[in-house]
Amino acid sequence: MTTDKNGAVNWPLAVAVGSAAGFVGAAVIWAGVRKLQASKVRPYNGASPTDRATRFHDLTIDAGNAEETFLVSTQLLRGKIINHFANVEFIFADLHFRARQLSAYSWLSPDLPYTIKKRIASVKALATADGPLRIYEKDLLAIANELPRFEKLRQFVAHGNMLVDFKRERPIIIFHVYDQPKQSQPILSERKNTLQEFHSSYMDLALFSERVIILAHKIITGVPLPPAV
């Protein structure tokens, strides 16, 4: 993370550095998977690595070259989605604790707004309260209201088990995750996407994350907001 002399995060530079690191990370992951290809890896759920009848795979199964390339692509997308959502979660909390250093927002809770709902509520409170952030009310409310749109995606990608069905002409990415809604029994939820659909979900989140980063940089340097610690 890069900061200026006042402790403000240089988000645009951080994004550039993160992108470069992502390319390096992709190369490292690819090299590691290529090394694994030559070895016999323990199959998932007891299925035979050579069994092409079911053709369900995750990265614990020794796949063919084309399948392996597909699996690596989906795993990289999965990591990028988690990273973008983590950026947004951090920024929401960062705005909370930075703003709390100003007398106008000293009423904010000293505790971490741990859940997504609490972070959204905090940003909405900052947007509508009397203080220097009020001029950003429209933009802050916009990102706070849009974040829930990605919550289901985050739940599946961050916590779900991922498999790929190669039986079809276009492989299907399948996520399974356990959940327990309030006042309900545990349920097993499923999400299915083609690679194109999965990439589209990633792009939607990436563009949203970029908006959040740019807005946070504008607020932190414009108000300015002091470092939280």
Score class of each variant (00 low, 15 high):
Leu13Ala: 11
Arg78Thr: 09
Tyr178Trp: 10
Leu207Ile: 14
Arg52Phe: 14
Ala16Gln: 13
Arg168Val: 07
Glu197Thr: 12
Ser48Pro: 14
Gln37Asp: 10
Pro224Glu: 01
Leu102His: 10
Gly131Asp: 03
Thr221Leu: 08
Thr221Val: 13
Phe166Ala: 03
Asp51Pro: 15
Lys138Arg: 14
Pro49Gly: 05
Phe150Thr: 09
Glu89Trp: 04
Val15His: 12
Ala142Leu: 06
Gly131Leu: 02
Ala129His: 11
Ala216Asp: 11
Glu197Met: 08
Pro12Ala: 00
Trp30Asn: 13
Leu133Pro: 15
Ile82Trp: 00
Leu36Arg: 03
Thr2Asn: 04
Arg98Ala: 08
His159Trp: 00
Ala8Glu: 12
Pro132Gly: 08
Gly46Leu: 05
Gly79Cys: 01
Val33Tyr: 00
Leu13Phe: 11
Thr3Asn: 04
Lys80Met: 02
Ala86Gly: 15
Ala121Gly: 09
Leu215Glu: 06
Asp51Ile: 05
Phe70Met: 00
Arg52Ala: 13
Leu195Ala: 05
Ser48Gln: 10
Leu112Gln: 15
Thr2Leu: 04
Arg34Gly: 07
Thr69Val: 07
Gly79Lys: 00
Asp51Met: 05
Ala16Asp: 15
Arg168Leu: 03
Glu151Thr: 10
Ala53Met: 07
Phe70Ser: 00
Gln37Ser: 13
Arg98Pro: 00
Ile220Lys: 09
Gly7Glu: 12
Ala20Val: 14
Val123Gly: 09
Ile116Gly: 04
Ile214Phe: 10
Asn6Cys: 13
Val24Asn: 02
Val223Asn: 11
Val223Leu: 06
Lys40Tyr: 05
Val157Phe: 00
Leu188Ala: 12
Leu108His: 08
Glu210His: 09
Ile82Glu: 01
Leu108Tyr: 06
Pro132Asp: 05
Phe97Met: 11
Leu141Pro: 14
Lys124Cys: 13
Leu163Ile: 05
Leu13Tyr: 10
Lys138Cys: 09
Thr194Ile: 03
Arg78Gly: 03
Ala27Leu: 02
Ala216Cys: 08
Gly7Leu: 06
Gln75Tyr: 01
Pro49Trp: 05
Glu67Ala: 03
His84Gln: 15
Leu215His: 11
Lys35Pro: 07
Gln180Gly: 12
Leu147Asn: 06
Val17Ile: 15
Lys35Tyr: 02
Val164Gly: 02
Val212Trp: 06
Leu141Gly: 15
Glu210Tyr: 10
His159Phe: 00
Leu153Pro: 04
Met162Leu: 05
Trp107Leu: 07
Thr74Glu: 00
Thr221Gln: 12
Leu195Cys: 03
Ile214Val: 10
His176Pro: 04
Gln180Trp: 13
Ile29Arg: 03
Ala14Lys: 09
Ser201Met: 03
Pro113Gly: 05
Ala66Phe: 08
Arg98Phe: 07
Ile172Ala: 03
Arg191Trp: 05
Pro132Gln: 04
Ala86Cys: 09
Lys218Pro: 07
Leu188Asn: 12
